[in-house]
Design a protein around this nucleic acid. Structure first.
Lengths: 217, 217
DNA sequence: GGAATAGTGTCTTTAAGACATTATCCA
DNA sequence: TGGATAATGTCTTAAAGACACTATTCC
């Protein structure tokens, strides 16, 4: 792998992936944490994760773990960074690869066989101390998420297929930690995102119903 | 490392880092490539890299390899991504961690013991097919570099401590693949970068000498 | 009609771009 | 003085923000 290998037989190590799964629940940004069933850190909270197998890419590991934990097949898992402090796992030398993703609120289906108590979305401002270096990973993920929200249309993954501009505005505000003036947001949103107004309107509201929009791509 | 470990004894593998080192030489963006001394791919070009040792982080590996190849101690090596196709290294399962960095033109000192023929800065538009998946890594690095140039003051690493605004403009143009109108660049640059005009001026030019600037941070 | 939210008009402020002018150095 | 590049003035255009207004629905 290199110009002059340092050693003819390089060290080997475990490689694990850790997932930061975001979700907006009741207008609060939440992260999925699980409870460790084994030592070390038995009983404490951590991010869902798993070891990379010999015949899979780290992305495939991430997909597999996400499916196991949430039964969601996700097309937008994003790489986050590598966490490689030699002491980060007290058992073995483990290189950690972080990923983050977003799921839409109502798409959360409790994965069968997983105790509801053991896998929970917790508001990001209330996340307890996590096992291993997962606090660091989670903070990195939040920073990256904020960056993606500012520069791409990543917010769409938090939304249902059809949504009102007010919903989009609220979610942008939550994720960007700011407010928007309504009129300016209307203009802003059309040049920022590829969205299209449909003929449908929201239902069961006491006031004038808003049109529903959808992302074009 | 996970909620429910799939297997009690996870697979182990090698982890390597690969470096994309950028440099502007004669107003051309270049990348350092080396010649492989061993099989596989003996004799072909590849990125400098090396295996992660048991007691070091991937960042430390990157620093070590950079020093070995260029004798430069660099404070701004940036993480790029993980490359984990199970077949990417025909010898062993190797997880690749990509990094990129930038060095200032005249800071290039050929590392002793390395044949000048074997480590070369090649203009990015002329880079030959590289060994392993290094083409992909190099392209990723270029994309990330462009992003950094657009959104941060990363361009400063290409420049000497003191520089003229025209030099800065030229380098921005090379890295952003565009041109700037001189007057607008003058305004742009002061809000975009933390730079300060010094009392010094460029020397040995046939025309009115420009003031030299420096980055504040 | 009143309450509530949807949606629009338009003025102001700020940044980006185009282009002309003046300034300073050397030979 | 002329050639060359540095540095500035200012007009135009486009985006961002502030704020007041009109529209539509349910009760």
């Amino acid at each position: 792998m290199t110009f002059l290998d340092d050693i003819s037989h390089p060290d080997t190590m475990r490689v694990a992936i850790d997932l930061v799964i975001f979700n907006i629940i009741n207008n609060e940004l939440c992260v999925l944490v699980v409870k460790r069933a084994e030592n070390p850190y038995k009983g404490s909270r951590c991010l869902p994760g798993g070891f990379v197998k010999n015949n899979e890419t780290v992305e495939q590991t991430a997909d597999r773990v996400l499916y196991k934990e949430t039964h969601i097949v996700c097309t937008h898992i994003k790489h986050l960074g590598v966490f490689s402090d030699p002491q980060r796992d007290p058992r073995w030398r483990t290189i950690g690869v972080g990923f983050y993703t977003v799921i839409y609120e109502s798409s959360l289906v409790p994965a069968p066989g997983i105790n509801q108590q053991d896998a929970l979305f917790i508001p990001i401002i209330q996340i307890p101390k996590l096992a291993f270096d997962h606090d660091i990973i989670q903070k990195h993920a939040y920073t990256k998420l904020q960056h993606d929200i500012e520069t791409t249309d990543f917010v769409k993954h938090f939304l249902p297929k059809y949504f009102t501009l007010n919903q989009l505005k609220t979610y942008c505000e939550i994720l960007m930690s700011r407010t928007f003036e309504k009129r300016n947001f209307m203009k802003y949103v059309h040049q920022r995102f590829q969205i299209k107004r449909t003929s449908r309107k929201e239902q069961y509201v006491k006031h004038r119903p808003a049109y529903l929009y959808k992302f074009v791509v």
